[in-house]
Design a protein around this nucleic acid. Sequence first.
DNA 1: TTTACAATCGCAACATTGTTGCATTAAATC
DNA 2: GATTTAATGCAACAATGTTGCGATTGTAAA
Lengths: 125, 125
Amino acid sequence: MKRPRNTAAKTEVMDLINQSDVALSHSEIQSSLDGLCDRVTIYRILDRLVEEDFIHRVIDIDGGVKYASCHSCQTSHHHNHIHFSCKKCKSVTCIEDVQPSFKLPKQYKVSEVNFTVSGLCPQCA
Amino acid sequence: MKRPRNTAAKTEVMDLINQSDVALSHSEIQSSLDGLCDRVTIYRILDRLVEEDFIHRVIDIDGGVKYASCHSCQTSHHHNHIHFSCKKCKSVTCIEDVQPSFKLPKQYKVSEVNFTVSGLCPQCA
DNA sequence: TTTACAATCGCAACATTGTTGCATTAAATC
DNA sequence: GATTTAATGCAACAATGTTGCGATTGTAAA
């Protein structure tokens, strides 16, 4: 079994995501790290953090991949909540505690829900 | 104002998407066309078809871009319905006539909704 | 503290997806 | 058939993500 290690880069990435109120992309994280580690290393750190359930991936309206730390996940682990993707400032925000409701027909086996609403966030509206 | 033209490639792309019951990616379309036209041309055709409201873009759970012809769009133009993204066969299907319901807090201006449910489709379940 | 193992890293190379500029081709109208 | 300009092909580029491998380093045990 694998034994995760704490490295400077991993800690810094974790802090960045924790301290942000919006989801961050790989390139945004890379800019913030300012050469602390390699581009590839960031990809691997993000993969590991997702794997270890510290963060989760969010897909924005354009298909862009972002990463966020949902605080509600620390208690119960469910990612089935709404994400808001702002068309103007491109920010992606987790809207906690709002559970979308829906019905699926037939024999579909649902395992995950990705509900992204786009438009203008409070700052841009 | 621009005057759209009907070309062999455009017609073929349109047919492919119309005849498919799942959303198709650029590379899938390229494979089907089998050299009928350039890769770049396919991108431009897809952009135009979206622009002309014949097809619409769907983002799957991994952030992949796919294109589908929603038959319900021909009457009333709204894309706010559920898409099902199969984790096994990677197919993306439009679930028509099922409208998700949700509530957003505060000052968010909603203009679009992308509701993707993932899991196993009837074929893979 | 030192050692040893494996997790992590940096670097180079590659793959995929998407975009842009420009000269050429061809569809629709006359 | 001639004209107009939408559409195409090609080359070049950009962004994003992946893989292999030798070097480095965190950490648990000696």
